[in-house]
Amino acid sequence: MKRIAILGSTGSIGTQTLDVISHYPDLFAVEGLAGGYNLSLLAEQVNQFKPKKVSVATKSLADELKLMVPSSTRVYYGEEGLLEVAAGTDADYMVSALVGSQGLRPTLAAIEAGKDIGLANKETLVTAGHIVREQVKRRGVKLLPIDSEHSAIFQCLNGESMKNVHKITLTASGGSFRDRTREDLQHVTVEQALQHPNWSMGAKITIDSATMVNKGLEVIEAHWLFQLAYSQIEVLIHPESIIHSLVEFADNSIIAQLGNPDMRVPIQYALTYPERLKTPTASLNLAQIGKLHFREMDYERFPCLKMAFESGLAGGTATTVFNAANEAAVERFLKGEIKFLQIEDIISDALDKHVLVSNPDLEQIMEADAWARVAAKRIN
């Protein structure tokens, strides 16, 4: 039986991970759960899966949760709680499904504790990829991708030698505004931005999909996951989200991974690798779909993706600033403080003002992250 801890259990990936686990109660046991502010859902999860440890965002929520769950479940809160669930349980596998750079420290703690990682928190590798890779190698743990695109690449590479890889292509749906011009984007609303055409995701990731920041973060994550140069990573718009990504080899052969847009497939594969089990998802019917469409990426239309590549090539703290400035800008957009297109302006300004640290340690990364957030809140 595989023992699982989940960071971000009340979010989109977390709830779908628990759904996968619920179909195989003989194979999985939940040791720890960390939610945020959704107390009622977290209490339901605790009462169903009976983890030994659980964490919430604040002390007041923790006090309230203690009255809603069995006394055998220990309740924590804040960053200490995240670290406790990540590294302080008997879990041998930790699913990192937090949104944003808050996932970095607990993921590093889980790696240090010798736990295999199912990674859905792309910001962990974006902000500190060199540190994460070094710790994974030193501790000898597995780092398995959960994002559909990286899972697709991982599956396409099964049994292949990396020296034979020519390039990888990450597919992108194009997000909520893929068919709108930049002129059309001048006055779009938060509600419009949150209407993703294919996937059911949290608010922050849905906005990132519309700006193409999410794909930029995935590009940087792919660089670290598969140890590929940025010149070997491409992005292709694929509106249907049926081909999740593909690999081209030295002989020009291309292997792609296809499936309906349902995150439970890559989640389950990360949990059961190298085995494949039945899933509750629908089978893909290509005849019913009929046609698949593709468009070349327009980096003028989606400047955030261009900035992601540039940040990755710059290296060091540039990717940390790219991510942190975006998190702060998206938060401002969701609150109605700025317009949609100002998100990219804020990221660009923060990158321009940042003094790069080429080979940062964890403290320098956290300093760059904090600086970028302050800067992004001041930029109009």
Rank of each mutant, 00 (worst) to 15 (best):
V56N: 08
G315Q: 05
R373A: 02
T89C: 11
T317P: 05
N164D: 15
L236C: 12
Q288F: 14
D184V: 09
H166D: 13
A109D: 08
D349R: 14
A91Q: 06
R74I: 07
F226I: 06
V141R: 00
I237H: 01
N285L: 12
Y77M: 02
A210H: 05
G103N: 02
P274R: 10
G36F: 04
R373V: 03
K115H: 10
A120D: 09
T211D: 08
A222Q: 03
A29E: 14
E275N: 13
M1Y: 11
D251K: 04
P106F: 04
L18Y: 06
S283C: 06
I343N: 07
V54N: 02
R295L: 12
V54M: 01
D116E: 11
H187F: 11
G11H: 01
V355N: 12
V75W: 02
M1F: 12
K278M: 10
E300I: 13
L42F: 04
K2G: 03
R180D: 03
K2D: 13
M307K: 13
R3N: 14
E327D: 13
L157T: 09
E248V: 07
T206M: 01
G8A: 09
Y299S: 03
R180E: 10
T171H: 07
A34V: 05
W224A: 02
T320V: 13
A372M: 08
V126H: 04
N214P: 03
E363H: 12
T10Q: 09
H354G: 08
T10G: 04
G36Y: 06
